[in-house]
């Protein structure tokens, strides 16, 4: 026992170093974002002497991060709302209702999990262009919904499977139609799953690069992550402004992580234990 404890303590040292190495890059970036350009060039490692919010303000307003931020906020919130609505509708039907073809339809939804976006992006761009949806918000929203719907359905179906059929039967005896059962019973009962799937879908959409790059070619329609990539070329000689832009893009995710860490971890592992 004593030996194990000693061993544990020794292991804690490299693990602490690794933890530091995990956090340091973000601290470094935050520190740089607070520095003036001159200060950065003179010594990039020293702790910033003053909190220079000027860089953040500059990145937010004149560089256009505010616009990209608003774009992301709009597209992500509509996409996630649609994902949760369509995912819970399908999940309820596929787990609780018996109808002809339900197995096949479930397989269709799940098979799409095996198709990564890279594999379909060329023909998808063509389909979207034919429909006139390239460079439009509805187009990007639709692309996100299509991309993350299979995952959402998978998790909602397995969650709803755990709800006893008696509850649905009782609701029907009370005079509810199938739609009533969905609205009055399944949606409220699904809240825990909707919350954790919703957080993951939000992260997926918010962090996406490739889909947004493909769907939104013009500069004013950029999402926040594409905005960050464009900063690099524009501000390669003004690192503090660049770092500020990165920080602006990272802060919402940081906040989500600080408050909802448990739910994120649970969502990630749900796929591994149920799959």
């Amino acid at each position: 026992m004593a030996g194990r404890h000693l061993g544990n303590r020794i292991v804690a040292v490299p693990m602490a170093v690794l933890a530091l190495a995990t956090i340091y890059p973000l601290m470094f970036t935050a520190n740089v974002a607070m520095k003036s350009r001159r200060e950065y060039i003179l010594d990039r490692f020293s702790l910033t002497s003053s909190l220079q919010w000027d860089n953040i303000v500059k990145a937010w307003s004149s560089v256009g991060m505010a616009r990209y931020f608003a774009n992301s906020l709009l597209v992500v919130s509509v996409s996630v709302a649609l994902l949760l609505l369509l995912g819970s509708m399908a999940g309820f039907a596929l787990s609780q209702l018996r109808f002809r073809g339900s197995k096949a339809l479930y397989l269709v939804c799940i098979a799409a999990l095996l198709i990564p976006f890279q594999v379909i992006m060329v023909p998808l761009a063509r389909v979207m262009a034919d429909a006139g949806l390239i460079d439009t918000y509805p187009g990007l929203i639709l692309a996100y919904v299509a991309q993350f719907l299979p995952f959402t359905i998978f998790l909602m179906t397995s969650y709803y499977k755990g709800i006893p059929a008696e509850i649905v039967d009782a609701a029907r005896i009370d005079g509810n139609t199938t739609y009533g059962v969905y609205l009055r019973i399944m949606l409220p009962m699904g809240v825990p799953a909707l919350l954790s799937v919703g957080i993951l879908d939000t992260l997926f959409c918010w962090n996406d690069v490739l889909i947004s790059l493909l769907m939104m070619p013009s500069a004013e329609n950029r999402t926040l992550m594409i905005g960050v990539t464009s900063l690099r070329g524009q501000y390669s000689d003004d690192i503090p402004t660049f770092a500020s832009g990165v920080l602006i893009a990272a802060i919402p995710v940081l906040m989500v992580y600080l408050f909802l860490q448990r739910q994120i971890a649970d969502g990630v592992t749900a796929g591994s234990t149920k799959g």
């Binding site: 399908a90 209702l97 299509a146 739609y179």
Partner: peptide, 19 residues
């Protein structure tokens, strides 16, 4: 009802992933 509930999701997946 079951088909109405599943249809939007299946249509999107078929049209924008499988097709």
């Amino acid at each position: 009802a079951p088909y109405v509930l599943v249809a939007p999701a299946v249509l999107i997946i078929v049209a924008l992933r499988l097709w």
